Simulated assay, not measured.
Amino acid sequence: MPKVNPYYRGPASDHFDGTRFFNPNGRQPRGMGDLLRWQLGRGKVRWPTHYPSPFQQAKPDLSIEADRLRVTMIGHASLLIQVHGFNILTDPVWAHRVSPFSFVGPARRNAPGIEMDDLPPIDLVLVTHNHYDHLDLDTLAALNEEHSPLIVTPLGNDTIIRRAVPDATISVLDWGDRLDLEDELVIHAEPCHHWSARGSGDRRMALWAAFVIETPVGKIYHVGDTGFHGGINYRAAREKHGGFRLANLPFGAYEPRWFMQDHHQNPEEAVQGMIDCAADHVAGHHWGTFRLTDEGVDAPVKALEQALDEAEIARTRFRAMRPGEIFDVPPSSSTRQ
């Protein structure tokens, strides 16, 4: 393991030891022995080669009315958020495979919910961490060439991006940092319980984060990947930001639990996260596009519906988004679960 961090150099903190980032009072990723135990074990449910979305590919408006909030699912954790005159992409991936190799690795089971050529002008791109299903360098290069957006990402990921897209405009945030943009838009980087790696030798050398998008028409909480971690980060986000009009929460890629539970929450935990962070509505993501773990392709939705029913939360408040689906998020209510 390298002793010098190739992506970031900076002072030690409560989540950086001078070489590697870590989850305070949390768990670090399991080692190679556990990985092999999982990969060689049984329990993987087969996925269909194709899992088409019931929605047609969307052709978004160039912008929407100032007081509206619209989310369109592209696939996995890639969402188009349109709010207050801004067009924002989260963790954009148009690649066929999420892998360091073009010929092997998890392959896309459905088409992107928006063709790249049909995107409206993109102002802002949020990249939560450097795993291949969240940071796709070819996609970022294409977006930069066509739209020249501002890319916001946690510490160290800028180095990775700039090697492939040297002229990109990038703002780099640590946990707790904020970035004030024009027209009262503010981006906050907040903790989540995860990890990072692009290969076998760079584990935890770039930071991972969730983002809060603060707008005049409500706050949005985007979590790319996280373990539930006892709800600590959700409750902290609620305490700091006072609840959310919308949270984008992962609820797939969670089996087997002995291996995944520290860093990928399951549907029941995602529902509890919705409650803990005081989100009026949730755009559920991280399921049905790339087969990363053992559960069946539609198992997350079935488990989500059961968890919502048990929590007495209307299913319409937590939507399991499919590629091409458009969600016009209602205004915040005065009461929350």
Rank of each mutant, 00 (worst) to 15 (best):
P121C: 00
P120K: 02
G176C: 05
V98A: 13
L179G: 12
F101I: 06
G201L: 10
E145S: 07
H131T: 05
D138F: 03
H96R: 10
L124E: 02
D123H: 14
D138V: 13
P106L: 08
H129Q: 14
Y132D: 14
A111D: 14
I122K: 02
D133Q: 06
F101Q: 11
D177F: 03
T159R: 10
E184A: 14
L185K: 07
G176T: 09
S200F: 15
C192R: 10
S99K: 06
L119V: 11
S102Q: 08
E190R: 11
R203E: 14
T139M: 02
T159Y: 03
I122T: 09
I122H: 02
N157F: 01
A141D: 07
P106G: 11
A141H: 04
R109K: 13
I122G: 04
V172P: 00
E190N: 05
V104Y: 06
E184P: 00
H193R: 03
G113S: 09
T153P: 00
P191R: 07
D133K: 04
E115G: 11
N110L: 03
L179S: 12
T128D: 05
S148C: 08
Y132L: 12
P100C: 09
G113T: 03
D158K: 04
P120S: 05
P149F: 05
R198H: 03
D136K: 04
H147T: 09
M116A: 14
L143P: 02
H131N: 09
R178W: 01
L181E: 01
T153N: 03
H131K: 08
V125D: 04
E190V: 15
N157K: 02
F101Y: 14
D167S: 14
